[in-house]
Design a protein around this nucleic acid. Sequence first.
DNA 1: CAAAATCTTCACACGTTCTTAACACCAGAA
DNA 2: TTCTGGTGTTAAGAACGTGTGAAGATTTTG
Lengths: 227, 227
Amino acid sequence: MNEKILLIEDDKNIIKFLSLSLETNHYKLINTTHGIEGISLFMTDNPDLILLDLGLPDIDGMEVLKQIRAQSEVAIIVVSARGQEKEKVDALDAGADDYITKPFHINELLARVRVALRKKSPSVVKEKTFTCDALFIDFEKYKVCVNEKEIHLTPIEFKLLTLLVENAGKVLTHSFIIKKVWGYNSCEDSQSLRVFMANLRRKIEEDSSRPHYILTEVGVGYRFIER
Amino acid sequence: MNEKILLIEDDKNIIKFLSLSLETNHYKLINTTHGIEGISLFMTDNPDLILLDLGLPDIDGMEVLKQIRAQSEVAIIVVSARGQEKEKVDALDAGADDYITKPFHINELLARVRVALRKKSPSVVKEKTFTCDALFIDFEKYKVCVNEKEIHLTPIEFKLLTLLVENAGKVLTHSFIIKKVWGYNSCEDSQSLRVFMANLRRKIEEDSSRPHYILTEVGVGYRFIER
DNA sequence: CAAAATCTTCACACGTTCTTAACACCAGAA
DNA sequence: TTCTGGTGTTAAGAACGTGTGAAGATTTTG
């Protein structure tokens, strides 16, 4: 959140215009009108994205692009008045992630900023797992371990455990669980549910007569302990 | 190295034009004029990049975009005659990596294709071979060995094994496997799948009644053991 | 075109999973 | 104590999913 954007641009009007738009969209903005300072600011401030104009007063924007790209994979969007095909191709091949020609629509620019940021953002592979004491669940792999030892759950058992864990700490009523696991038009028979709870506890609890994870709320339902 | 590009576009002239350009630049090209078939081809052919027109004769291109993006991070460049700001923003926010408006300059398109491919490529570092115990697979040479002895697999068997191995450790549901192997619009018939699993096991398992590599998750699907 | 390989479909045996029913257990109330 | 309502446990059979051989359909190959 609050990604940092470095704007290297010498047109005062565009600076004003972009500052406003970017800041209302909750980006942190740094800006400079000169290429040399741009490279320097990139080094010191470590922005998440750079908006780079090609026509700068001191050095050529292409030079700035190449120097930054030589050191970093940071997202760079070229924003330029030069709309010639060759310049676009050169900038893109020199490492720019996108190229927008002035004049541009602000919403398109913002959308392209989002694209560039989502691609460069540390696309951490989200492990969809859950751990609580000796219990480990990998929802994606459909795998459940107790004390590092894999145990086998049937489809309904897995669904039940997932439901409980997703609502850890909350009490789930019998009818809620039945609706979620068996579907909305199943009769309100809690016999099966009790059997499944027993089986589930036998598999994941150390002592199923004194459950640690799945607690019974008499007259109401069941609840998974809060982490 | 010979990246595969899927072109979903209904304008015959553009198809001809792009085919020529892309093939002279040594890309492998697959193309279709319909969105539904596009999704299906994406599933079966696993392209490195998709060029998507928004105005298709069967379904809306945005729908194609969303459906593909729901399953994959593959590079997608929208190539459309619709140049409205809102459409660009919608497509980019729906997951497109870039948006080019017709008419376009071919060199700019090619440059943007290079940008999209170079950004996606590092994440798709695909292993060329796979080894697990007595099983060896060379994906490029389309070769499978068990105990150093080459065995013959049919195309679907190979595809199935590849899919399982690429997701080693994860449970793949029947419907997921069917979609990936047989394509998007195949009916949900798991009969064939069971037969292929049996054949595959007979070929790679020592004792196919007690499989070592391909495990069954009753009621859910199959999975390849974790390395 | 014929032969071979591959794929699909069907039937059925077998194993797993689910449902159901019976009963034990544990409060708290009469 | 006995009764009562809710819960835990066990076991049997029903329902469902899976493995497998073979036959027929389709595609590929020579």
